[in-house]
């Protein structure tokens, strides 16, 4: 995969080669916890620094080079706000969960597609049996994954619709039309997700890989020895694979959770109704107090679940406002 090799190889000397725009993007990304005015102010400082250096006759890259190690600068900037610089690494899982349905997932899908295309291209070009076997194994793995996803999807769709079919009366074929339209809705949502992934892939499929790489540990700015870049590249590779797997995992969970809303709402309506009847029955002297409490429990659970889903989906926006 020549593209990948290039981006990893470039990584360890990234600081010297970084342009002003790249620096600004990195600052935007790593200082996203700060509010916008502060962040713009910080960016302005460095932009002005680079501008001044360039007016003294330096090239843009040299000007960025005078700043030293960008990772250290960002860490120290965060510390100036009493923020633990490793926060974005620690809460990465949390961010992933929130972003999984949006761009993160789409971008990763783009990357994966890109890699896959590279692999196919290489295998065909090399014309070597080993490469082809590797490719076949990969395709098999992909099909297996797709099958698992399909089983998942089947379960979700049926969970969502069979319940409704049970509730609805069979006049005018209502019990067939409503579940059918809900199935259609699910398919449309899925299609939208796939399209947004494809769109992101087209937009930043190729250059995303190099941009996405986090600055490595920013301890000392010692010269990089021959061994170091290889090691670092390997490390990056491992993390990117694991984050990708994690993304897919989170995505599946999220889909399950979100698609479970509908049956959940119906169940809630049902149990609230039942609650009313049961309460009435209790007051009329029937021994239904146990059922009544059970019903209440189900209600509370369902409401909690719905709130959880709501927070999961809309949590990101609120957090942004708070920051």
């Amino acid at each position: 995969m020549p593209k990948l090799k290039n981006s990893y190889g470039k990584m360890h000397e990234r600081d010297d080669n970084m342009t002003g725009t790249e620096l600004m993007e990195l600052l935007d990304k790593r200082l996203s916890i700060l509010n916008e005015t502060e962040r713009e102010d910080i960016k302005q400082d460095y932009a002005q620094h680079i501008e001044m250096k360039m007016s003294e006759g330096m090239t843009e890259e040299e000007a960025v080079g005078t700043l030293g190690d960008i990772g250290t600068i960002i860490d120290e900037t965060l510390m100036a706000y009493n923020i633990d610089p490793s926060y974005d690494k620690k809460s990465e899982a949390g961010q992933k969960i929130r972003k999984a349905l949006n761009s993160e997932f789409a971008q990763k899908t783009g990357e994966t597609l890109n890699k896959g295309l590279d692999a196919v291209h290489n295998a065909v070009k090399a014309n070597s049996p080993e490469e082809l076997i590797k490719l076949l194994v990969k395709i098999f793995g992909f099909c297996l994954g797709a099958f698992v996803l399909f089983v998942f999807g089947y379960l979700i769709v049926n969970l969502g619709t069979s319940m409704i079919r049970g509730i609805l009366p069979s006049i005018f074929g209502l019990d067939r039309i409503v579940p059918g339209s809900i199935k259609l809705l699910y398919i449309i949502i899925f299609a939208i997700l796939v399209f947004s992934a494809a769109y992101n892939f087209i937009q930043n499929g190729t250059n995303k890989i190099s941009k996405d790489i986090q600055p490595a540990d920013s301890g000392e700015t010692v010269d990089v020895t021959d061994g170091a870049p290889k090691k670092e590249a390997k490390k990056m590779n491992d993390t990117s694979v694991s984050t990708k797997l994690f993304d897919i995992f989170v995505f599946i969970i999220k889909i399950c959770v979100v698609f479970a809303i509908l049956p959940c709402i119906f169940m809630l309506i049902g149990t609230i109704l039942a609650q009313g009847f049961l309460a009435a029955a209790v007051f009329m002297g029937y021994p239904a107090i146990g059922l009544c409490i059970g019903c209440l429990g189900v209600n509370v659970c369902t409401i909690t679940f719905l709130i959880f889903v709501f927070k999961l989906v809309f949590g990101e926006r609120r957090e942004k406002n708070e920051a």
Binding site: I42, D45, Y46, H49, T66, L67, G68, D69, I70, T72, I73, E76, T77, M79, A80, Y81, T221
Partner: peptide, 16 residues
Amino acid sequence: DVNEGTIYPLLKRLTN
């Protein structure tokens, strides 16, 4: 003789 970039975070901290 320091990396010039490291002075900016310091200024930020002293301002904060």
